[in-house]
Design a protein around this nucleic acid. Structure first.
Lengths: 233, 233
DNA sequence: ATATTTATTATGTCTATACATATTAAGGGA
DNA sequence: TCCCTTAATATGTATAGACATAATAAATAT
């Protein structure tokens, strides 16, 4: 049996996506179940299951065992951004990657960081400030805190010759993370580090990682002026 | 047979993810195929297939028919951001959504836009500038262009009472899109519209949509001061 | 009438088998 | 030796059937 006779999961997915878009089913309402749809499309329930699973992943419907499949009232569009390693991003642009450690200090966790990442008072953390260059051009300023309780191996690392992210990726897995994209006006430090005028708008990426509910790292990255984060929908 | 005896696709996925992280297989190299892995894990090839498909989607491996499955040299982490409708985002924060059309003009496509979105010289476009409020507080300034060749129904729409995005979602599907996140220093117009000081750092979201290779809309959104776009990893 | 227990059900997933197909390797001819 | 054709192969996907399970509805007990 050739493809043009069999209904593929992509066919099912596209037809259902179209019906949702045309509000064939009211937002918020239940739509037909897998068995009914497999009869309609003349295909296996597993084929319908795959189509619906992907639509759920795309944010258009929500599914519950026994409860059925419901059209989302406010279907959401997702944009997936690649978060490349800084070295790859710079090299892909055709520049040499260069790294410089500005400061390395072991401290007791400050209260603001405790509150921010849900750490425990009194814990030791490693504070690193470093710069990443594209050739001779300042690309990114990094302000990072590593929890020495969840990542004790970091204590023995100078981070003189390896950037923290590359070390962490190799040495310490994480289970959860949070990313916050935003912007700030450059202050004196950022102005000097990134070679921009005071007050220049800087794109920022804040990131917390956890390992099994234990906060592990907190990093705030400040990108060079004019930085753009791009993705296809 | 109970779950603790059967190998699930999630078990397979996690074990393989761990092996990739521990560089059991060298980055860039071929890893064992589905048949071999199904024998190792004592499960169906379809179970391994699903695990590997998801790892490919997560950016850790790449797969080709006949060529096999290869560990990515530079595995990439993805952050998936929800792009909510502005009304939903504002209402979810507990505010009333308010919309105001600032300007509506039909024009011939400017050269810079032609170049930016790959349009054709001489085509008609609709230029809209509008504001979105959270209660009485300025939330977002929107500068949008709609191609009247690919979205002719927009010509008949005043956009006095409906925000362009809500209208477009309902009336015009799109097939492709591009999103660019960045930042700018507020100029005179943005300063007035968003009620921020001149030069304040503003988070921006630029978005182009296409319908079958035909550029349809171009929008640039300027968010209020302090805006943050958040996601979980 | 309410709470608890039991039954039902719609989705989640596993399996074996089969067919499809993009890609690579091997074989044959010029 | 090079080019074209054919074969092989590893992944992509469809199917039928089975089992698992979260969630809801119905039945039963108090």
């Amino acid at each position: 049996m050739s493809t043009d006779q069999k209904t593929s999961y992509l066919d099912v997915k596209n037809v259902i996506r179209r019906r949702i878009h045309d509000t064939v089913w009211e937002p918020g309402s239940l739509m037909p179940g897998e068995v009914e749809l497999s009869q309609e499309f003349g295909c296996a329930r597993a084929t319908v299951n795959r189509a619906l699973r992907e639509l759920a992943q795309d944010g258009m419907i929500e599914r519950k065992r026994k409860a059925g499949t419901r059209i989302k009232s406010a279907p959401t569009r997702h944009a997936k951004f690649v978060i490349p390693r800084i070295r790859e991003e710079i090299e892909r642009m055709g520049f040499d990657y260069r790294y410089a450690l500005i400061e390395r200090k072991e401290k007791t966790i400050p209260d603001w960081l405790c509150a921010r990442i849900g750490g425990k008072a009194g814990e030791d953390v490693l504070h690193l400030r470093c710069m990443h260059y594209a050739g001779s051009r300042a690309f990114q300023y990094e302000d990072r805190w590593i929890n020495l309780v969840s990542a004790p191996k970091a204590r023995a690392q100078t981070f003189q010759d390896i950037n923290p992210n590359e070390w962490l990726i190799r040495e310490v897995p994480f289970s959860d993370g949070e990313v916050i994209l935003s912007t700030v006006n450059a202050d004196q430090i950022m102005s000097e580090m990134l070679n921009v005028s005071l007050g220049a708008a800087l794109f920022t990426l804040e990131r917390i990682t956890w390992l099994k509910d234990m906060p592990m790292t907190f990093a705030k990255l400040y990108f060079h002026a004019g930085y753009q984060m791009t993705t296809r929908l």
